[in-house]
Design a protein around this nucleic acid. Structure first.
Length: 418
DNA sequence: TGACGTCAAGATCCG
DNA sequence: CGGATCTTGACGTCA
C-alpha cells in the first residue's frame, strides 16, 4: 500500500506555493511566481523522496491562472529544462503525482462557456503533467459536476463532453464520487459508458452511497475500472471531523481508525489522504504500515513533534520519552496515539512558558545580549496576557532562523510562524 | 444573495 | 515604519 498527501507540506521550508490575485496578475509577477512554484515542487519531491512518500498531489495553483488567458507566460517553454529535470526525478523515485481540479471545474455544465473553461482547465492540468513527462498512471481527478435537476441527463452530458476531449486528457482523467450528488454506483454506470477509472472516496461514500453501503464491496467494484496502464487503483481516504459540517476533514488521521479501516483492503492500493495536517498524517500512516520501519523513524518523528507536545501536555512528553527508551521495540501505535491525545489538550500559559523556556535553552547559547533581554521581556508580557502565544513563538522562530538551527527550524512547534 | 472550501495575498490596524 | 491581525479572492452550483 502506498500512502500520499495533497498539495502542501507542513513544516518543510521552501515548499510553499505562491498564489496570485487577478488584479496583480501581470506577466512579470506570474513569471516570477511560476519560477518559485516550480522550485517549490522540486523541494517537495526531494522531501517525498527523503520520507519515502510515493504518492503526491500537485497543487492546481502551481501555474497561477494556468488555464486563463490572463496568463501570458509560455511556462512550458520558459521552464522546460527545470520541468524535465523534476520529471526525471519523479520517475526515477517511482513517485506517482496526480492533480485535482477543484469544485469549480464543471465539465457537465449546461452553460457552454462553463464547459469550455472546464475543458481549458483539464487541458492545462494535462499540459502540466505532460511537461513533467510522467506516465499514464499520473492522473487528473475530477468530480462529475452539477445535477441541474436531472442526474441522469447530467451524467449523459458528462459522457458527451468526455468523448470530445483530446486523447491526451482522456489518458489521465479519472472520476471521483462526491458527497452530495453522484455516488459510486452513478460513477460505475458512467464507467460502463466511457471506460473512465473511478476513484473511490471513503468519506464521500459514507455521506452519499447507494442502497448498500458496504465500503469494501464498492472499493472492489471500483478496482475493476482500473486497467494495467492506469496504474494501481487509487482511492481517497479521510475521516469526519467531529462537531463540524458533514464532509469536513479531520485535523489529523486517527491512526487506530485508519488501521481498522484498511485491514480488509487489498495490499496493492494507492491511498491519498485528505486531511488538514497533510504530510504529517502521511508519514504517520506510512510508519504504521511499512514493515521496514524501526524506532529510528519514530525518533526522527519525535524530534519534530516534541516541543509541540511539551507545550500541549508535559505528561504526554514524559510518557513518549519512556516509550522510546527500548531501542528494540517499535511502539508505533502508542506513539502516535499519545501525540493525538496531546493535540486534544488545551494549551495552558504555564505549559507554553515551560516549552518556550525549553526551546530558549538551545537558542540562548548563541543569542546576543539584546535578544536575551527581548526574550525575558516577551515571556513576561506573555505571562501577563499582553502578548499572544503566536507572537512569542514567532520571536523564537526568528531567532532560530537567524542562528540557522535546522533542528528547531523544522520543529512543528515553530511551523506556523516561520 | 450567501454558503460552500481554502489559505495566502492584500488591506488595515497598531505601537 | 514594520509587524500583527483582519478581510478578501477565485471559481460554479444550489438553496
Amino acid at each position: 500500500m502506498r500512502i500520499g498527501f495533497a498539495c502542501l507540506a507542513i513544516g518543510v521550508p521552501g515548499t510553499a506555493i505562491r498564489h496570485i490575485l487577478k488584479r496583480s496578475a501581470d506577466h512579470q509577477t506570474l513569471s516570477d511566481a511560476i519560477r518559485q512554484n516550480i522550485k517549490a515542487l522540486d523541494t517537495m519531491i526531494e522531501y517525498c523522496i527523503d520520507q519515502s512518500i510515493s504518492l503526491f498531489r500537485i497543487s492546481s495553483d502551481i501555474i497561477p491562472f494556468g488555464s486563463s488567458p490572463l496568463n501570458t507566460v509560455d511556462w512550458q517553454k520558459d521552464f522546460a529544462d527545470e520541468l524535465t529535470r523534476i520529471g526525471s526525478k519523479i520517475r526515477e523515485a517511482g513517485i506517482r503525482v496526480t492533480m485535482h481540479p477543484g469544485q469549480y471545474t464543471v465539465l457537465n455544465a449546461v452553460d457552454q462557456a462553463v464547459v469550455r473553461r472546464a475543458v481549458d482547465d483539464l487541458v492545462y492540468h494535462t499540459a502540466f503533467l505532460d511537461s513533467l513527462q510522467t506516465n499514464a498512471d499520473s492522473k487528473i481527478i475530477l468530480h462529475v459536476g452539477g445535477a441541474y435537476g436531472d442526474k441522469n441527463l447530467a451524467l449523459d452530458r458528462f459522457a458527451e463532453q468526455y468523448i470530445r476531449l483530446p486523447g491526451s486528457v482522456c489518458k489521465r482523467l479519472v472520476i471521483e464520487n462526491d458527497e452530495r450528488l453522484f455516488n459510486v454506483s452513478d460513477l460505475l454506470s458512467l464507467h460502463q459508458k466511457i471506460r473512465v477509472p473511478v476513484v473511490f472516496d471513503t468519506l464521500h461514500h459514507a455521506l452519499n452511497h447507494p442502497d448498500t453501503e458496504n465500503p469494501l464491496r464498492w472499493l472492489l467494484e471500483c478496482r475493476k475500472t482500473w486497467s494495467e496502464s492506469d496504474g494501481p487503483q487509487k482511492i481517497h481516504y479521510s475521516q469526519q471531523a467531529v462537531d463540524k459540517r458533514p464532509g469536513s476533514h479531520t485535523q489529523t488521521i486517527q491512526l487506530n481508525t485508519f488501521l481498522d479501516d484498511i485491514r480488509s483492503w487489498p495490499d496493492k492500493l494507492d491511498v491519498m489522504l485528505e486531511v488538514k495536517d497533510k504530510n504529517l498524517s502521511a508519514v504517520k500512516c506510512i510508519n504504521a504500515v511499512r514493515p521496514d520501519r524501526t524506532i529510528l523513524h519514530l525518533e526522527k518523528e519525535w524530534a519534530r513533534y516534541k516541543y509541540e507536545v511539551l507545550e500541549q501536555a508535559p505528561d504526554v512528553y514524559v510518557l513518549i520519552r519512556q516509550l522510546l527508551q527500548d531501542k528494540k521495540s517499535y511502539p508505533v501505535q502508542s506513539f502516535y496515539q499519545a501525540i493525538e491525545n496531546a493535540a486534544d489538550r488545551e494549551v495552558t500559559t504555564g505549559h507554553a512558558v515551560n516549552a518556550a523556556q525549553h526551546v530558549w535553552g538551545y537558542l540562548k547559547v548563541h543569542a546576543s545580549e539584546r535578544e536575551k533581554r527581548q526574550f525575558e521581556n516577551q515571556l513576561k508580557r506573555y505571562q501577563e496576557g499582553r502578548l499572544s502565544n503566536e507572537s512569542l513563538k514567532r520571536f523564537l522562530c526568528r531567532v532560530a532562523s537567524s542562528q540557522n538551527q535546522p533542528y528547531l527550524d523544522q520543529s512543528l512547534y515553530m511551523r506556523r510562524y516561520c
